[in-house]
Simulated assay, not measured.
Amino acid sequence: MPIIRLNSLRSITISKGIVGVVGRRTFAAGASKAKKGKGGAADGPKASSLSNEAKSTTVFGANILKDGQDPKILADSEYPDWLWHLLDKRPALSELRRKDIQTLPYDELKRFVKLDNRARIKENNSLKAKN
């Protein structure tokens, strides 16, 4: 099945002995008429129809259910403790290698083993690919 790109179609026209190649553009003609000025926006920024109270108490756009509602923002004490540590920086493999393995906490030791295994697998795969 041939694939045709509409923006690069060309047609040959023959009229009274003149042969020419005519390019066909497939862009929407009405889009450029709505623009006013250099910025490209027809109107200025639109004001939000939501009140400040609603913005500060609801997470808009988080609803995934058809008949559901957007969730309300709760107090910090209502969320689990692990949530506040998701964005904490964790040490890289090179930093973990410099530390004494015997004194590492369980979470860092587990991370070290995972990252070290991943690095060894990548190294073995690159050696096999060269041979």
Rank of each mutant, 00 (worst) to 15 (best):
N63S: 15
G39K: 09
S126F: 09
P45M: 13
I64G: 12
G17S: 14
N125S: 06
D107F: 04
H85S: 14
F60Y: 15
R111E: 03
G30I: 05
R10A: 11
K122E: 15
L74E: 13
S32N: 03
R118V: 00
G39D: 12
A34F: 07
K35R: 12
S126Y: 07
L115Y: 02
N7H: 12
E123L: 13
A28F: 07
E95P: 00
L96D: 02
F60M: 09
P105N: 15
R90Q: 15
I73Y: 08
Y106Q: 14
A34P: 01
R118H: 03
G37M: 11
T57L: 09
F27K: 04
V113F: 02
G40F: 09
L74Y: 05
K72T: 13
A62R: 12
S77R: 11
Q102L: 10
K89W: 01
K35G: 02
T26R: 04
I3R: 09
R10Q: 15
L83A: 09
D70L: 06
S8I: 08
N52W: 05
G68F: 10
N117W: 01
D116Y: 12
R24P: 00
S56T: 08
N124R: 13
D88P: 02
R120V: 03
K122Y: 04
E123P: 00
G17V: 06
G23H: 08
P91M: 11
I14K: 13
K99P: 00
S11N: 04
S126L: 13
G44W: 06
E123A: 14
R90N: 02
D43Q: 05
A47C: 01
R118Q: 08
I14P: 00
G30K: 07
A31W: 03
L86S: 03
A129T: 04
S51N: 07
Y106A: 14
W84D: 05
R25N: 15
W82K: 07
T103C: 01
Q69S: 15
S32D: 07
L6P: 03
R97T: 01
I4N: 08
W84Q: 04
D100H: 10
A75Y: 05
K36S: 11
G68A: 15
G30W: 11
L93T: 01
E95T: 13
K99T: 04
Q102N: 13
S11T: 10
S94M: 04
R98M: 13
P45D: 04
L104G: 01
V22K: 10
F112V: 01
V59D: 05
T13G: 12
S15V: 12
L65R: 14
Y106M: 07
Y106F: 07
D100R: 09
D116E: 15
D88G: 01
D70F: 10
K55S: 05
T26C: 14
L109G: 03
E108A: 10
I4H: 11
K110N: 11
P45F: 10
P105E: 15
N117P: 00
G61R: 09
K66F: 14
K16P: 00
K89H: 06
I73L: 15
K36H: 09
R111M: 07
N131W: 05
K38I: 14
